[in-house]
């Protein structure tokens, strides 16, 4: 347990630690947690944090609910829009995917459907560029992507991205409604 301080600093703010991070520090932290997982779990349990993990990422959760389900829903719903846009941009958008702001911008400029989707998200931003940038920032601040190169705006998706897609997979749609949804 060499990184209790770093783990707390990152995870208590709601961030994720991913195994495929481009940052060597983050990878070291991930590996240390992986090696001493039960120690870390016990350590943070004492201050009411549950160290949880998925396929290649760690995050903090709690035993009891601190936020109402309505508020949780409010934090989740934007991600439905974001994922809808991102998977429309690249159907294989997943951990390890690299993208640049310029690439997305070019696609949006030539794809009406994509542009339409983008127009309805992040409505406080006006231009296409600002919206795409805000989307990338949302990914980064949540720990779902990392900046590889600031100059050409290149990003890489982290393994923590699976967390949000996992939640989407867990959602079951009522059978009778499923038939009503157009393809």
């Amino acid at each position: 347990m060499k990184y209790t301080n770093e783990v707390f600093q990152r995870l208590s703010r709601g961030q994720f630690v991913s195994s495929n991070s481009i940052d060597t520090d983050t990878r070291a932290i991930y590996n240390d947690i992986e090696e001493n997982q039960s120690d870390y779990e016990k350590y943070f349990e004492q201050i009411d944090f549950i160290l949880s993990n998925g396929d290649g990422y760690y995050y903090f959760a709690r035993k009891e609910q601190k936020v109402t389900t309505e508020n949780k829903l409010k934090s989740l719903t934007p991600w439905i829009d974001y994922l809808d846009f991102l998977t429309n941009y690249d159907s294989t958008f997943d951990s390890g995917t690299q993208f640049t702001l310029a690439q997305i911008e070019v696609r949006v400029a030539s794809d009406v459907e994509l542009r339409d989707k983008l127009e309805h998200i992040l409505e406080d931003k006006q231009s296409i560029h600002d919206k795409i940038e805000a989307l990338a920032n949302a990914l980064v601040s949540q720990g779902f992507a990392e900046v590889i190169n600031e100059v050409d705006g290149r990003y890489q998706v982290t393994t923590a991205f699976r967390y949000i897609t996992n939640i989407m997979e867990c959602l079951n749609i009522d059978e009778e409604v499923k038939d009503e949804i157009p393809e």
Partner: peptide, 23 residues
């Protein structure tokens, strides 16, 4: 979404810190 999926129960089971306001 709320009416026709199990989103509420799925979210009810989870208490991840990222959904909490930043402390």
């Amino acid at each position: 979404l709320e009416e026709n999926t199990n989103v509420k129960s799925v979210l009810g089971e989870r208490n991840p810190v990222w959904m909490e306001p930043v402390v």
